[in-house]
Design a protein around this nucleic acid. Structure first.
Length: 227
DNA sequence: ACCGTCAAGTGGCAGG
DNA sequence: CCTGCCACTTGACGGT
């Protein structure tokens, strides 16, 4: 079970009954997205701007780093934005493997005209993003679990209250002849089963509440599997 | 101006 | 000790 979110993150979660395809809160403009609304940076800033000779390691290359440091002080070099094609290839290899061997890293770096370090960083960040997404989904799932368990807890509490109320109130015993409730003075306790019965005739005990289907407070049913 | 995203820096830790 | 990974953080940048 795996899904690809709109932001391109592959997500899997070992949570029962959760469809992982819903994670669509991937916000913002991801340069991973395929053909989606972000047309910023359509041009590949890693390529030489105007047909100049090709730089081997475009943004943040060793040579450029030294240059940057010399001029601008302790500022970072300009932020690298990977081109769509670079992102696509990285994403593709990430789908195949979430970690790279040094050889794979080297090969990918050459293919993408990046430094191996940049490929490595991309994979690290990509793993982190995947994990974050997964954690968010788990969080959502647990919130839902909490909600339904709270609801069930409330329901069971109510049931307990009802059962307690039945136990406290005296039972209503009907006369076998008139089917009318008998006065308490007309009741006796069966010595064998300790059931309250009318002085004459078979016992007809009804719980005081109108819950006819509820188990009798006397001779209660064994707890069912539903509990 | 603020916020979200993301490449990259840093320090800690485990495995060899 | 070295290497690779991870968690956390920083800073650039685009969108609103």
């Amino acid at each position: 079970m795996g899904a690809t979110s709109p932001s391109g993150l592959e997500l899997t979660m070992a949570v029962p009954g959760l469809s992982s395809s819903s994670g669509s809160e991937g916000a913002g403009c991801n340069n991973n997205n395929r053909g989606g609304g972000c047309n910023m940076r359509d041009l590949d800033i890693n390529q030489p701007a105007s047909g100049g000779e090709e730089e081997e390691f475009p943004m943040g290359s060793v040579e450029e780093d030294e240059e940057e440091r010399g001029v601008g002080g302790p500022h970072r070099p300009k932020k690298l934005r990977l081109s769509k094609e670079q992102s696509r290839l990285l994403e593709e290899s990430f789908r195949l493997n979430h970690t790279l061997t040094p050889k794979q890293k080297e090969a990918l770096a050459i293919k993408l005209k990046l430094r191996p370090r940049q490929v490595e960083v991309w994979f690290q960040n990509r793993r982190a993003r995947t994990k974050l997404k997964q954690t968010e989904m788990e969080c959502e799932y647990l919130k839902r679990c909490f909600g339904s368990l709270t609801e069930e807890n409330r329901r069971l509490q109510r049931e307990v209250e009802e059962l307690r109320a039945m136990r406290v109130a005296p039972p209503t015993v009907l006369s076998p002849h008139t089917r009318q409730p008998l006065p308490a003075s007309a009741l006796t306790m069966c010595p064998r089963c300790e059931r309250i019965t009318a002085a004459t005739g078979p016992p007809t005990v009804r719980p005081p509440s109108s819950a006819a289907a509820a188990p009798s407070p006397f001779h209660p049913r064994r707890p069912s599997a539903a509990f």
